[in-house]
């Protein structure tokens, strides 16, 4: 009994420590073969535990990856929703315009006939033309700092995923300001770099449709064309480029648009 108790204690300790010291086991005189057996058993226990740890590590890595993917998808859905809201707003204002102008307006609005087919850009520019130039809310220091984070992540850190996160935080906290439009524009740029063309198109469309009088609008329209071209939507790209030239003839984007139009 006196020998058995310490042996079992040692065994328990070894299990806890996860380390096997052959010497400490064999120092007990009570039949080294018996002790050898228990350390042999421990070998298998540890082997199984290691296998289990690896399996769990694998699960952990896979789930972390899943979460990351879901987060990204969540963000993309957010943009999608935003775009749909813009789209609905557009149609509403189109309908209102039509009602205000009466039946004669239908003939004078080229492109409105396409409104039903969901051609966002064509409809936008039309309705935008009838809108007055807005005064955008100017940012305070906190807003500027938050915007600075986006810029830093894009230009210095080139960490586009986190930059996109920052854009979403920004537009939520500071909606409908001057820099909000810039933020949407940069979201488009981020997605364009990442070759996430669907999302890029949506982000640029938001600027083009909702803030068509903003100074970023010509750039956004031009970049929308670039995105459309990369998606293989050549006709859409051509239309967007023609609109850059027609609507913003003095903008920096106009000569760029003319250039790209020539190479289409």
């Amino acid at each position: 009994m006196q020998q058995v108790i310490p042996a079992s204690l040692v065994l328990a300790l070894m299990l806890a420590a996860g380390a096997v010291s052959a010497q400490s086991v064999s120092s007990f005189q009570d039949g080294s073969d018996r002790e050898g057996q228990s350390s042999g058993e421990l070998f298998f226990v540890i082997q199984e535990l290691r296998q289990e740890v690896r399996r769990l590590q694998g699960q952990l890595e896979e789930q972390a990856n899943q979460i990351e993917r879901l987060n990204r998808q969540g963000r993309e859905r957010y943009v999608d929703l935003d775009e749909r809201l813009v789209d609905v707003g557009q149609r509403l204002s189109t309908v209102e315009d039509g009602m205000a102008k009466g039946s004669s307006a239908a003939g004078s609005g080229p492109g409105l006939s396409q409104g039903g087919s969901g051609n966002l850009v064509a409809g936008t520019v039309d309705s935008g033309a009838s809108r007055d130039r807005r005064n955008y809310r100017q940012p305070d220091d906190a807003e500027r700092a938050a915007y600075g984070i986006i810029q830093k992540r894009i230009h210095e850190e080139k960490d586009y995923d986190r930059a996109a996160d920052a854009v979403y935080d920004f537009v939520e906290k500071y909606p409908e300001g001057d820099l909000t439009v810039n933020a949407y524009y940069w979201l488009g740029e981020i997605y364009l770099i990442q070759k996430n063309l669907d999302q890029a198109r949506r982000a640029f469309s938001i600027v083009v449709s909702r803030y068509d009088d903003h100074r970023k609008a010509p750039d956004a329209l031009y970049k929308l064309a670039v995105t459309q071209q990369q998606r293989g939507d050549k006709e859409d790209a051509r239309r967007s480029l023609e609109q850059v030239i027609a609507r913003y003839p003095n903008a920096d984007a106009a000569p760029l648009a003319r250039n790209l139009l020539g190479s289409l």
């Binding site: 690896r54 399996r55 590590q57 694998g58 890595e61 896979e62």
Partner: peptide, 8 residues
Amino acid sequence: SDRSGSPQ
């Protein structure tokens, strides 16, 4: 590395 149970 096969730390997750299979080479990755």
